[in-house]
């Protein structure tokens, strides 16, 4: 019963979130386009499914994963865990936080795999590319990017370097990669940066950043707690471009192999032709010889 009540409450919140989108779509469809929506029944059922799905998803996250994940982030960053016994930290060494980096990487990877908006973009990319881009490989490369990004972001909070040095370096890497990345995948890579961090990742990552910044001496949770999400989105761009370059290299290899095979075939054919021609000419010469005699 309590669960049902919670469900209805979450459903109400989701509907309120969706209302502006729905009214914009309906308003433009009716007033500007002035045509009935094609497949209205199927589309409305789709919308209802999305609403129910999102509601169940959020409810489940609140019940199962968020409390546990947030508690873990707090426990892993607590002084008691870092310096067995010591209640207050006086000095920190970045290597004391090894488990935090492992946790950051693991939680970044696993939450990205479950991120619904990334699933949506991956499905669309696979559809548009006619299967040349595999939805799962795209998601895994984004997840690797997020895990590296969040681990590095936690390291930054521990050592206290300024955020913008890292971000600007990341931008420089993105700029360089853009020139070497296959053109077909550049927009998708840029997009994946914005998509990675939403419903599942943000609450857990924010808890981690806050936990780190509030326990390490000299860090302010208000200033150093921010920035992890920016890391995640930047590194997923880099990861997707790297994936694109790797698969591109592979595609090139296959292409080259095919070309080579064709070239061999052509060469053989040419050889055969030459041989035939040579035979022909020698025959001709023989015949001429005979005639001369």
């Amino acid at each position: 019963m309590a669960l049902l009540l919670e469900f209805l409450q979450t459903l109400k919140n989701t509907v309120v979130d969706v209302l502006p989108i729905l009214s914009i779509i309906l308003g433009f469809q009716l007033l500007v386009i002035r045509k009935p929506i094609p497949h209205i029944k199927q589309v409305s059922f789709g919308f209802i499914y999305v609403l129910i799905g999102l509601t169940l998803f959020l409810l489940g996250l609140e019940k199962a994963l968020f409390p546990l994940g947030k508690m873990m982030a707090e426990q892993l960053t607590a002084p008691e865990f870092i310096h067995q016994g010591a209640k207050v930290l006086t000095t920190v060494h970045w290597s004391d936080y090894a488990w935090v980096y492992v946790f950051a990487a693991a939680i970044g990877f696993s939450t990205t795999i479950a991120e619904p908006s990334l699933i949506a973009v991956a499905i669309k990319a696979e559809e548009v590319s006619g299967g040349a881009i595999n939805a799962n490989s795209l998601r895994i490369s984004v997840a690797i990017g997020v895990s590296v990004g969040i681990a590095l972001g936690s390291y930054r909070i521990v050592v206290g370097h300024p955020l913008h040095y890292y971000i600007i370096t990341g931008y420089v890497i993105v700029v360089i990669q853009t020139f070497y990345c296959p053109k077909l995948l550049v927009p998708l890579a840029y997009d994946s940066g914005g998509v990675t961090t939403s419903t599942v990742t943000v609450p857990l990552v924010a808890a981690l950043g806050l936990g780190l910044a509030s326990t390490i001496p000299g860090r302010s949770p208000l200033i150093d707690g921010f920035g992890l999400i920016a890391f995640a989105s930047l590194f997923s761009i880099i990861a997707v471009m790297t994936y694109a370059q790797l698969t591109h290299a592979k595609a090139h290899k296959i292409e080259r192999k095919v070309e080579k095979r064709q070239r061999i075939k052509i060469n053989k054919r040419k050889l055969r032709q030459k041989k035939q021609e040579a035979d022909q000419t020698s025959n001709d010469i023989n015949q001429q010889d005979k005639q001369d005699r």
Binding site: Q42, F45, G46, I48, V50, I52, G53, P116, A120
Partner: peptide, 9 residues
Amino acid sequence: FFIYGLEMG
């Protein structure tokens, strides 16, 4: 449900 509705709606 979400992925279902995504492709339908």
